[in-house]
Design a protein around this nucleic acid. Structure first.
Lengths: 259, 259
DNA sequence: CAGTGGTCTAGACCACCAC
DNA sequence: TGGTGGTCTAGACCACTGC
């Protein structure tokens, strides 16, 4: 099989070998891998060792297991999320949520899990400049592409500024999405920040996003500011890492002076 | 405890339990966990099961193993990388590379692995608008905080525009770093883009960054553009995911119209 | 030397799926 | 009912560490 055997674990080598076969098309996109028992037999190792290799492939998003059925090669391309343009898209149709997925000719679906008035989580209150537990309007949703979950997104708005707007309490927030409603209320977002981290998913996220315990997710804290640096929305995105590429761009700030 | 409890694997529960103990300070930061054999004994499971739990803690960056010694609780805080400000920092001292680490009162070190003239990798050539394999100046380096590797960074410059500048061939590129040298040459960067993905590290990265096969890394493709959208640098960062928070901010673009 | 984690095995039982 | 992956065990050998 391999010419030179590096001092590497068998399961590591097997993972590499399987990746190679996927690249070469021995196991085409969307097709099932041979069963772990077969692979163990072919490669002359125990099933546990094969399973450990497959665990790596799952963590990297190269394969996906369907329980009771088999292990399948991933068929999704990475989705590009252009931070700047996705929000600019509100000048056209609906909100930012579904822009990227449609570009890939995939069917985009949004499922709302909660829309209503709730006390804000501590960190959210802090960012929005509210008292701890102060009322916020929350919109919690899950987005899908061709039926597969691609992200969870929880938006929080200070209740004091959105209470007069009923459309934010409906699933369809109307033309241009929630940011257009904020604009209607006199709080048009003019500046955004995003903090990006990677971590492993918790139990709820594993279930909602159909992930394993060792598949990393992006966590993005998106904050929208209106005129006068007034924070008007916090949106927390949780997205399977293997599915996304995040794009950012900005102009140099040297002219404005250091801060 | 929980209202509805999903049936969960023992190793998953053990991972949760260990995380709890770390949070509560039962195992303080920097201290060693009990050995896997002890834990197996205490928890009434096999050592393999404990090991699988520890594997999860390693993937999330909560613990770090020292071979032959034991498993230690991780003590590093996350490092904030503010994309905009780090480059603005060149107006003061050295380049962007060490800004963040110093903020945390950690010792920052840079080790150069290669500085010289090389044929550009395909994707780099494409971004820089060069012929495939065209000459570039490469600066490949590894950054450390308190002796621990925090990122690999490989910068590529079109050879045609930097060949006249010797300081870019030295480790210390001079006051303000390489971007100031580009400015000297008449190619001051005015715009940047970054594409961010997460993936598992390859063999070389595992070794250089002291990572396990299942610890995710950020891969950032940073591109600097001079006036007239002329690409003048591509820098590829590979950074342990558990160590970093990436921050971006930008102004709304609606006024400029959609693209 | 003894203790640590790294790895591998053979065998076992389970839940899930399609037929 | 048979095939799939999910999990767990007891036992084993190894490389590495510090003493």
């Amino acid at each position: 099989m391999a010419a030179i055997e590096a001092p590497k674990s068998q399961y590591g080598q097997i993972a590499d070998e399987l990746r190679k076969r996927i690249e070469r098309g021995v196991y085409p996109l969307g097709s099932p891998l041979p069963s772990e028992l077969r692979l163990a037999d072919e490669l002359g190792v125990s099933r546990v060792t094969v399973n450990k290799a497959v665990t790596l492939l799952r963590a990297s998003g190269d394969v996906k297991v369907r329980r009771g059925l088999g292990t399948y090669v991933r068929s999704f391309p990475r989705i590009m999320r252009d931070a700047k343009r996705r929000y600019a898209a509100r000048s056209l149709g609906t909100g930012a949520g579904e822009v990227e997925v449609r570009k890939l000719n995939l069917t985009s679906t949004t499922k709302y899990r909660e829309i209503g008035r709730v006390g804000s989580p501590e960190r959210v209150a802090q960012i929005l400049g509210l008292r701890k537990g102060a009322d916020t309007l929350v919109r919690r949703r899950v987005l899908y592409a061709d039926g597969e979950p691609t992200q969870m997104a929880d938006s929080y708005f200070p209740w004091t500024i959105v209470k007069g707007d009923g459309s934010l309490l409906r699933e369809d927030a109307g033309k241009g999405g929630s940011y257009s409603r904020l604009a209607d209320l006199g709080y048009a977002p003019v500046r955004f920040t995003e903090d990006v981290t990677v971590r492993l998913p918790n139990d709820a996220e594993q279930q909602t996003l159909q992930l394993d315990a060792n598949q990393p997710v992006f966590e993005i804290w998106h904050v929208a500011y209106a005129e006068g640096d007034r924070p008007v929305e916090v949106c927390i995105h949780v997205m399977p890492g293997a599915l996304w590429t995040l794009r950012y761009d900005w102009d140099d700030d040297l002219a404005a002076g250091p801060s």
